[in-house]
């Protein structure tokens, strides 16, 4: 996993990749594929497309490694590529038609049928997350992903560490608003 990697081994891995060591790059893909794929697949519902996009991320990593100066951590740099690739993926897409509308009072939740409500809500939530701006999307998708370091997420999104929580609250508020209105 990414967080088990010390900076020296990361440094070595990058150096080996830059020398054209194919095995080193394979190792890099093995280390990061879990988090990269999870981040991408949480944003792109179509699995085949998600895999293609996750592959694109590593192709960009491979192409960019000769120019990677090591000023940022490798992980941060990779997540930044994820953000860019997701943003590019989003651009040509048409926004889905709104499902229902209106801004009546929020729906009440009974505790008894929570399991059923959870299932339905999860479905609506996934749709609503797909509608968030890419930065909010990556923040929410990444924050609740085990193994992804807080500081990597902050740096990849160009957020000062102290503001991550505020931004996360804003992202979740926007998500809640979508659930209270368009995705009721």
């Amino acid at each position: 996993m990414a967080q088990e990697m010390t900076s020296t081994s990361e440094h070595e891995l990058v150096a080996r990749c830059r020398e054209g060591d194919e095995q080193a790059f394979r190792e890099l893909v093995e280390r990061y594929k879990g988090l990269v794929f999870a981040l991408v697949a949480r944003s792109i519902a179509d699995r085949a497309r998600a895999e293609e996009v996750a592959q694109d991320v590593f192709l960009k990593v491979h192409r960019g490694l000769p120019y990677f100066r090591g000023e940022a951590r490798l992980s941060t740099w990779i997540y930044r590529i994820v953000v860019n690739v997701l943003a590019a993926e989003r651009r040509p897409m048409k926004t889905e038609p709104l499902e229902g509308s209106g801004d009546g009072p929020p729906r009440e939740f009974g505790v008894a049928d929570r399991a059923f409500e959870d299932l339905a809500l999860r479905n609506r939530m996934e749709k609503a997350i797909a509608r968030l701006p890419v930065h909010y999307q990556v923040l929410i998708n990444g924050h609740y992903l085990k193994g992804l370091r807080y500081e990597d997420l902050a740096e990849a999104l160009d957020l000062p560490m102290g503001t991550v929580k505020t931004h996360l609250h804003r992202a979740k508020r926007q998500l809640r608003h979508l659930l209270e209105t368009e995705f009721r």
């Binding site: 879990g34 949480r42 996750a54 592959q55 809500l121 209270e180």
Partner: peptide, 25 residues
């Protein structure tokens, strides 16, 4: 609603890459 969102986000499954992912890359 906010609590439900928190709970669901925390228990969201992480999608796993297919076995041949590295090979295909």
């Amino acid at each position: 609603m906010a609590r439900a969102v928190d709970r669901l986000l925390a228990t969201r499954e992480a999608p796993v890459p297919p076995a041949a992912f590295t090979f295909r890359v």
